[in-house]
Amino acid sequence: MNGAKLRQQIAFSVLGAITLLIVVPIILVILYIIINGAGSITWQFLTQAPRNGMKAGGIFPAIVGTILLVVGTMLFALPLGVLSAIYLVEYARDDLFTRMIKLSVVNLSGIPSIVYGLFGFTAFVLLLHFGTSLLAGSLTLGIMSLPVIITASKEALESVPLTYREISLSLGATKWQTIRYCVLPYAIPGILTGTVLSLSRAAGETAPILFTVAAFYLPRLPHSAFDQVMALPYHLYVIATQVPNIPLSISFATALVLIALVFLMNLVSIILRAHYRKKRLW
């Protein structure tokens, strides 16, 4: 028995060490970016356009561009994702078509982001003549975000007790009234949490926007959905690889702003979840 205990001690220590090996780099990465980037973040950096071949000035157009992309993505993907989830949970029968939808969701979630970029380029930029634009980029990112939104919405809808639907139907409400008043209100927290999470991913993606939206250097704000925009992740890619002699501090500060934005969205999602969990009555 002592041998077994000793072996357990050793095994658990090894597992602990492995975990440490993962956790420490995560913390180091975050700290490294904060320490190197925080010094360069000034009001000017956040509110001015890049100047002097991006070697000076700020990243304002990229911040705005990323926010616009996120909003565009949400406008497209949220309704589509929620409606698909409603279909799957409330309407779908267990037939071939339903299985095809489920399989499609699984496969959408596995398609590499660069393939979304290719698709967005042929479908939206070329075929639909949207050009390299905010619209084309939002649609591309939107399709990419769909599987996460659908999965989260589906889980949220399924977690609403069946009895609510039964009560509503037994009072003579129609199916849609039942969904609208007795299911959706209780699923919204879960839907929002998943949506914000998927949007935070979209905000950090570079590959899908490489050829669909991102401008190398565009020191002004877009005028319409058919305009190109700068975007934070693409901007970081450009200044890290394409433009020589960029001060490292600018790259670090850009990375920090991008991470901060993504974390902020994650935080919103966590707060939403906690808030609604406290309020819910079932």
Binding site: T163, Y164, E166, I167, S168, L169, S170, L171, G172, A173, T174, Q177, Y181, C182, Y186, R280, L281, W282
Partner: peptide, 30 residues
């Protein structure tokens, strides 16, 4: 219409997670 005319009370009390008022008002509203 049928379910409006023939109401049912379930085995376990099943209320919606809203106020007393909204529970009763739900039917007329829909």
């Amino acid at each position: 219409l049928l379910r409006k005319k023939i109401g049912i009370i379930f085995a376990l009390p099943q209320v919606l997670p809203v106020s007393i008022l909204d529970n009763v008002a739900y039917g007329p509203k829909v």
